[in-house]
Simulated scan of single mutants.
Amino acid sequence: MRLANKVILITGGYTGIGKAIAQKAVKEGAKVLVNGLDEKFGLELVKDLGTENATNLTIDITKKEAPKLLIEHVIQKFGKLDCIVNNAAQIVSSTIQNTHSEFLIDILKTNTVAPLAIIREALPYLEKTKGCVLNIGSINAWGGEPDLLAYSISKGALMTMTRNLGDSLFRENGVRVNQINPGWVLTENEQNKKKAEGMKDDWYKDIPAIFAPAKRLFSPEEIAAAATFLLSNECGPISAQVIDLEQFPLIGRNLPKNWQGSHN
C-alpha cells in the first residue's frame, strides 16, 4: 500500500476533495485526522473509514487555537504526523466592486494564513518523520475568473507560499511542500451551489467544450489519485512544485472553431 503507516491531517476533509483524499489515504494504508465545520459529516466519515483508521476534529481553522488543537489531537490519537493536506477553503464570488479590505482579509485568513499557521505548528513533528505538506490550490491562482477576485488572490498567495516553503523547509528541515491546482471539480458543494443559482439538477452533464474538452468535470477521486502520489514516498525528493490538474492548457489554448468570444 502506497501510504502504509503514514498519519495524515486533512483540513476541509468532511466533503468534496478532502473527503476523497481521506478515503483514498485510508485505502492506501494511512491513518487520518479529518477536519471540517459540520460535526455530523465528520462523524459519518469516521464511521465509514473505521475508528481505528480515522478521527475527526470539528473546528474553524481560522480560530487562534485551531492549529495547536489539531496537532495535539493527531499526536494524541496516532503518536506521530507524516503529512498535512491543507484543503479547507472559502470559495466565494467577488469582484473589484465588492471586494472590500475586510472581506479580502477574511478570505485570506482561511485560504492562506491558516494553512501557514498549521504548517508552523506541525513542523517539529513533520521534521521528525521527514514528512510533507500538500496544499490544495486552484487554477485560479494563475489569474482567476472575473468574479473570483478574492479567492484567486488567496490561492495565488498560497501558491507562492508553497514554492517558498517547499524550498526552504526541504533544505533546512527535510520537509517537502507541494501543491495541486485543480480545475473544475464536481463536488457535492459545487452541485448544490449551481442548483441554488437556478441551474437544472443535471447541469454538469451539459458542460460546453470550452470549459471541459472531455465533456465532463473532474471527480474528487481523480484529484485524490494525484494527491496520493505527492503524499507517498514514490515521488522521492519532489518539493516546491505546483501541479495543475486541468483539461486544457492555461497558456496557448486552441479555441474551438465556432468560439464566439473575444479575439483580443
Rank of each mutant, 00 (worst) to 15 (best):
R2I: 12
L3M: 12
V7I: 14
T11V: 00
T11D: 00
G13W: 05
G18V: 03
G18R: 00
A20E: 01
Q23C: 03
G29T: 10
L33E: 10
G36K: 05
K40E: 15
L43D: 15
E44K: 10
E44F: 06
L45D: 02
N53W: 08
N53A: 07
A54V: 02
I61E: 02
A66N: 06
K68H: 14
E72Q: 15
V74N: 04
D82W: 05
N87A: 05
A88R: 00
Q90Y: 14
L104T: 01
K109G: 04
T110S: 13
V113N: 02
R120I: 12
E121M: 10
L126C: 04
K128V: 06
K128C: 01
C132W: 00
I136M: 11
S138N: 02
S138V: 01
G143L: 07
D147G: 02
L149R: 09
Y151E: 07
S152M: 06
S152T: 08
M161R: 06
D167F: 09
S168A: 14
R171H: 14
E172G: 10
V175N: 06
R176V: 11
R176C: 09
I180Y: 11
G183V: 06
V185Y: 04
E190K: 12
Q191R: 13
K193V: 01
A196I: 03
G198Q: 13
W203P: 03
W203T: 05
W203Q: 06
A212I: 02
P213Q: 06
K215S: 14
K215N: 15
T228M: 13
P237Y: 13
Q241L: 01
D244W: 03
L245A: 10
L250I: 14
L250M: 14
G252N: 07
L255W: 11
L255E: 12
